[in-house]
């Protein structure tokens, strides 16, 4: 190799940063690609850092493929460079559910804009996708149930981690994204906590969202079938105690 920089680093250097958490960036090639880069953490020992990063990239990729095979709408995997901590995933053309629901617009949007564009604000952004709020909630519940049926726990269900994608046939579909905290589990507890996390996310980002979340649960129940009863009971428990199991002992 002429340069010490690997090809993946060059790729990242050519990409546009869209948000930094774990660092995700859009690449400007003819087929757009989302690159999720877990950069190396200087404060960790080199060996540990490499191993952790590799394990996390692999874990995220495995959760995605499991979902894909089960027909859950998730982005496809396009490239993996575990050594560099890079996961390349399909670019989803759409909008995050957070931005589509009342109260979810980004805080950065300047205040004056809000006052100016009041009339425009009244246009429901969902119209563009041809779904009503209720239909959207239904899509969310169904997609989560499909995922839980194959024992994938998302770990970070929020309205920001769901996107509504325009389909060519005018039927929008809901795509679950960011499986960075996901894991495999068949436990009722884990599924209930997953739902509880989403409920809290709804309550904190979208005002008056109780009826919305209820329709999510209705659709979830429909899809889950007989597993639902146990999850429902556990969800009620979790609501009382919070997502951390009791620390007794």
């Amino acid at each position: 190799m002429a340069s010490t920089q690997g090809p993946t680093n060059v790729l990242i250097a050519k990409s546009t940063l869209i948000s930094q958490g774990a660092e995700a960036a859009k690449n400007a090639h003819e087929t757009p690609l989302l690159i999720k880069h877990r950069f190396s953490k200087g404060y960790r020992h080199k060996t540990l850092d490499t191993n952790l990063t590799k394990a996390r990239v692999a874990g995220e990729a495995r959760a995605l493929i499991r979902c894909l095979r089960a027909g859950v709408n998730v982005p496809g995997i396009r490239m993996v460079d575990a050594t560099e901590g890079v996961l390349g995933i399909e670019w989803i053309e759409g909008t995050s559910v957070r931005k589509l629901l009342p109260g979810g617009a980004e805080e950065e949007e300047a205040l004056d804009e809000v006052t100016e564009d009041l009339s425009e604000d009244e246009i429901d952004p969902l119209k563009e996708f041809g779904v009503s709020v209720d239909q959207l909630m239904h899509l969310i519940g169904t997609e989560i149930a499909k995922m839980h049926l194959v024992d994938v726990i998302h770990g970070d269900l929020t309205t920001s981690n769901m996107m509504l994608r325009r389909s060519p046939n005018n039927e929008s579909d809901l795509v679950l994204i960011d499986f960075g905290l996901s894991y495999l589990s068949a436990l009722v507890e884990d599924k209930a906590v997953d739902l509880y996390v989403l409920e809290r996310a709804f309550a904190s980002t979208h005002p008056d969202s109780e009826p919305m979340f209820q329709s999510v649960l209705d659709a979830y129940q429909n899809r889950m079938g007989k597993e639902w009863a146990a999850i429902k009971r556990r969800l009620d428990d979790v609501r009382l105690r919070g997502r951390k199991r009791s620390m007794v002992g």
Binding site: K54, V57, A58, A61, R62, L64, I65, L68, R69, G71, G76, I77, R78, M79, V80, D81, A82, G88, E90
Partner: peptide, 18 residues
């Protein structure tokens, strides 16, 4: 479309397959 997406994803993640 579904098969293509799964197959392509499987190829992409081959290096970290279980």
């Amino acid at each position: 479309v579904a098969v293509d997406n799964i197959v392509t994803s499987t190829v992409a993640m081959k290096s970290v397959m279980a």
